[in-house]
Design a protein around this nucleic acid. Sequence first.
DNA 1: CCTCAGTAGTGCC
DNA 2: GGCACTACTGAGG
Length: 179
Amino acid sequence: MAMREVLDAIEFATCASSIGQVVVAHGSQGIRAVFIGDDDAAVLLALRSRFPLAALTPDQGSCKRVLPDVMGLIESPWKDFSLPVDSCGTTFQQQVWHALREIPAGSTASYTDIAQRIGCASAVRAVAQACGANPLAVIVPCHRVVRRDGGLSGYRWGVERKRELLRRESVWSSRIEPA
DNA sequence: CCTCAGTAGTGCC
DNA sequence: GGCACTACTGAGG
């Protein structure tokens, strides 16, 4: 785990989106991270602090190949996404992230729902922590997890961005599935 | 509205 | 191994 972060070369590229500056990091096995922030400085700082020991180099081609799909997902988060990803995390985190990918666009789940779904009903707070540790913004839709009482709770990249993503998905969802 | 305890995974020491 | 963190939750002021 830590070894791989040292040995694996990671390429990165930034790009402007409608909800902020995006940085995509790509390693030998796939997309390592997608972060959102106010500007290049912010997202690059976040990237460096996530991979303090890795060899980060400006894009040599792999980011450029995946960027259209990633940006498309950010503008239209209900689209399918099937490019290879390579997020490293603990077993628990992987379970949480896997569960998140099964929340359909247009709907939300509570931290309790996710905890139950992975068979750790009482690990609610740990689930929230794992959501916050999700390195694949929008690809792993942690923005669809909200409080049981309906509150938005937090979002690593800013609650306003979470609100906007959910708003778009809700609009899209009510358009193809009129009540 | 606010506080508090229960609770479980993670990171740092 | 301990200890202090949480993007929680439900109960009780």
